[in-house]
Design a protein around this nucleic acid. Structure first.
Length: 567
RNA sequence: GGUCCCGUGGCUUAGCCAGGAUAUAGCAUCGGGCUUCUAACCCGAGGGUCAAGGGUUCGAAUCCCUUCGGGAUCGCCA
């Protein structure tokens, strides 16, 4: 709704600026604490036409013509600012739209196809608390983009033939595999042992190299040993992802691009640009004109491919599959992803948009699967669920255990996802148990609780036979500040989806969801619903609670967080 | 050493790309509010040299330069 409001403001101001005798440019419209939307256009015009910005704003305001039925209520001048307030019609229509569009409210304004790649952790162990930052950002972005209207395919790119996997495959033949453990955890155990062994006996590294050559040349037995290792790790990883409510539409194997010939053909294309040369036996690409001082190795001296080489082929394939590609990658990929884009550009292929997130480290230093220095996501989830159980126990001791377990699950995972997604990806963070298990009051549980409250009010009203979701309503009786503020907050849904989709910043949406819950809670505290004296008012307040339930539900769904009806 | 990201009240954090109206919220602290729709809530208070210094500008948390601190990275790992 806000997007339409903004469009109308733009059109009205454009006309006013022109008729006031100025040239239109960027209106610099943004929400403001002083109005529903404010424009600083007078500042910009001031320097251009060398007039007082305050006078310019006044001239523009004087020329404003608001058409009948507009979402724009009034445009006022405060100093050099143009403060625009929405009309009652905007409020009423938002209310009506939410009730008719329900799950679809606030979205569907974009078209196009996107391949989103996220998580893509190496199958050499379980997802640790750093990996899931990738998963949560990627999955939330996918949900945001889908709401915006895009057709999004989420992919997990599986490294099934890199050095790490060669080590895992070898490790499985050397060390005992603990079948009692979750398979990805057991894979990490042997992988860590193998790395320690290789460090102690460097002469064994040649065996790993040999395996990599064999797998690339198509040796059946080697391929089988790699596949076995990968599937053990991936099945455990998938379980973890499922638990987090993170969804991938497909898992794509690196090896597919070797076997299809795509890798050798893209290497051929790169060679044809004349950018390649042999350096100490390895094939390298010169990207100096793209600002990379060092060359990029795309083939080892033994002729085998590297991650980067296969990744180029993967992106070529993705580029044909969708109009746009987005990769969510850790900060360690900054350089390599830049080189990847440059190389794709050099051979005339579409490039991905890269979303980089900074690292999650431990108080004692950075995490490493190889050295066994990491905290697994499974461990975190178990702990947080237990903590959540204690919180439920404290508040709803009378409820059956089944209820408490169920709520603890949803609330615990919501808290994890929210804590990750609410901070902007470019901040590096340090994981510590105390903070991770501290249920921040205004995190996911706060939003879930607001939703549960709305559900509970509606349920009680239905039981009391004073509410029926199909009832005709008239929102014009909702005039309290908290009522209008709640409706206007809900109207912002599309604007926030649009902004986070455009900027690929899920934390913007996360913050909005919290503000939405905040607006609902203020309404809840300020005005009685079920006990409202007048029937018409009560019915419309109930309908407003229903709206809030719908929009809070949509917000939680967009965050991939469960929305329990009671907690 | 080169390059990139970050540095905002005790702690976490928004705003920075597109410079302007009293710098955003939460946690923690202090005070108030449940005979009334779930208090995982609401209302209020205190708390800030926006890392430091310089520059651009009528105006800088925001742009530029320098320094300091933290993170990432610098070819045959991914």
């Amino acid at each position: 709704m806000f997007l339409q409001f903004k469009e109308q403001v733009t059109s009205i101001l454009d006309d006013a600026i022109r008729s006031a005798g100025f040239e239109i440019g960027d209106l610099i419209l943004e929400p403001s604490p002083h109005a529903d939307i404010a424009s600083r256009v007078a500042f910009k015009l001031a320097s251009k036409v060398k007039q007082n910005p305050k006078e310019i704003a006044e001239k523009i305001a004087a020329a404003v013509v608001i058409p009948d039925g507009s979402y724009v209520g009034k445009i006022e001048v405060t100093g050099p600012y143009l403060n625009i307030t929405a009309s009652r019609r905007y409020v009423d229509e938002t209310f009506v739209r939410i009730r008719s569009e329900k799950k679809d409210f606030g979205g569907g304004f974009r078209t196009g196809s996107i391949v989103m790649e996220h998580t893509s952790a190496n199958p050499n162990g379980p997802l640790h608390v750093g990996h899931i930052r990738n998963s949560v950002i990627g999955d939330t972005l996918t949900r945001i983009l889908k709401r915006a209207g895009y057709d999004v395919e989420a992919q997990y790119y599986v490294n099934d033939m890199g050095r790490q996997i060669a080590i895992v495959a070898w490790a499985l033949s050397q060390f005992e595999f603990d079948t009692a453990k979750k398979s990805d955890h057991a894979i990490a155990d042997v992988y860590i042992k193998a790395n320690a062994d290789l460090e102690e006996h460097p002469e064994k590294v040649a065996g790993i190299d040999r395996r990599m050559q064999l797998v690339e040349s198509g040796d059946e037995a080697t391929i089988e040993s790699f596949d076995k290792a990968v599937s053990l790790a991936i099945s455990g990883i998938r379980e973890t992802l499922l638990r987090m409510n993170v969804h991938h539409d497909s898992f794509v194997n690196e090896s597919d691009f070797i076997r299809s010939g795509a890798v050798s053909s893209i290497v051929g294309e790169i060679k044809a640009t004349g950018r390649t040369e042999i350096d100490k036996g390895a094939l390298v690409v010169d990207l100096l004109d793209y600002g990379f001082k060092k060359t990029l190795v795309i083939q080892r001296s033994d002729g085998t491919s590297l991650y980067t080489t296969r990744d180029l082929a993967y992106h070529e394939w993705k580029g044909k599959r969708a109009e746009r590609m987005i990769d969510v990658l850790g900060a360690d990929h900054k350089l390599i992803s830049g080189q990847l884009k440059a190389t794709l550009n050099a051979i005339g292929k579409p490039e991905p948009d890269i979303v980089i997130f900074e690292f999650v480290s431990l108080p004692e230093g950075s995490m490493s699967t190889r050295r066994g220095k990491f905290i697994t996501s499974d461990e975190l989830f178990d702990q947080i669920e237990e903590q959540a159980y204690r919180e439920v126990e404290k508040r709803r001791p009378e409820m059956p255990d089944e209820f408490k377990r169920q709520v603890a699950k949803v609330v615990g995972m919501g808290a994890v996802r929210y804590d990750i997604v609410k901070v902007s990806p470019e901040k590096s963070t340090v994981f510590d148990w105390k903070t991770a298990l501290d249920f921040e009051k205004q995190g996911a549980p706060f939003i879930q609780y607001s939703n549960a409250r709305a559900c509970s009010i509606l349920k009680k009203a239905e039981d009391d036979r004073i509410w029926n979701p199909g009832t005709e309503v008239d929102p014009s009786v909702l005039v309290e500040d908290t009522e209008v503020a709640l409706i206007k907050k809900m109207a912002l849904f599309d604007k926030v989806i649009d902004q986070s989709a455009r900027e690929l910043k899920p934390h913007i949406f996360a913050i909005y969801a919290r503000e939405l819950a905040d607006a609902f809670n203020q309404f809840y505290r300020f005005v009685p619903v079920i006990s409202a004296e007048e029937e018409d008012l009560r019915t419309n307040r109930l309908a407003l609670v229903d709206c809030a339930r719908i929009v809070l539900g949509n917000a939680l769904d967009t965050l991939g967080i469960g929305a329990p009806e009671a907690m």
